[in-house]
Each structure stands twice: as structure tokens, then as C-alpha cells.
């Protein structure tokens, strides 16, 4: 299935990745090549086949609801690119 430049821009927007013009060209070509490899799946009849969730069949794993220590604020913020006091600092989310 061929992917054009417009579709690449749509996917990049979904994935929140800015792309250069050169990247858009390359990805359109490469993603088309890769999707061609996927066509083989359409030749398999999978009507009524259950999709795989866990390979060993684990299902709805529950644990006891026991309080435990979690990371303290300093550790949590240790790798924050920008912080203000004990808070992560982010850009404005709402328009003025």
C-alpha cells in the first residue's frame, strides 16, 4: 500500500513528531515498502480466530491492595527538564 507525503504528515501529527522535508520523502518511500511486506497477511483466513492477549494465557492479574512506599518528590523530580519547587514545569496548556 503506497503512503504519500500527506499521509506521512497525518501520521507524524498523530505521533507528535516534527519532520523535515527530507524525512517526509524518505518515510513515504520506506513506509510504503514496509507496508507492501504486510500484504501477505491478507492472504490468511483468520475468521473466528481469537487475537492474542498474553502468550502464556495470564488473564486479569490481581494483587492485594497494600500501601507501600513510593518514590519521594526529590527522586521523582531528579530527571525533570524543568521544575519549579516540587513541581514539573510545563508550557501553558490553555490559550489566554
Amino acid at each position: 500500500m503506497p503512503i504519500d507525503r500527506e499521509q506521512v504528515e497525518h501520521i507524524a501529527a498523530l505521533a507528535r513528531i516534527a519532520l523535515t522535508d527530507a524525512e517526509k520523502e524518505a518515510f513515504a518511500r520506506q513506509l510504503s515498502d514496509i507496508l507492501d511486506q504486510f500484504e501477505v497477511l491478507q492472504t490468511l483466513d483468520t475468521a473466528g480466530v481469537e487475537p492474542t492477549a498474553h502468550v502464556a494465557g495470564l488473564d486479569t492479574v490481581l494483587r492485594d491492595d497494600e500501601p507501600a512506599e513510593s518514590l519521594d518528590a526529590e527522586d521523582t523530580l531528579l530527571n525533570a527538564p524543568r521544575r519549579r519547587g516540587d513541581l514539573f514545569q510545563v508550557r501553558a496548556v490553555l490559550d489566554e
Binding site: 506521512v8 501520521i11 498523530l14 505521533a15 507528535r16 513528531i17 518515510f27
Partner: peptide
Amino acid sequence: ERTRQHGFGPEVKRRIMLGAF
């Protein structure tokens, strides 16, 4: 978008795009 543009290499971007599609 610019964080992800500069932070990820080509193959990682390719797979994220493929998956998002």
C-alpha cells in the same frame, strides 16, 4: 514535536510512525 524530532533517531521514528499508522 521538536523534542521528539531531535530526541529520537531515524529507526525509532520509523517504528513509531509505522505503529501510529
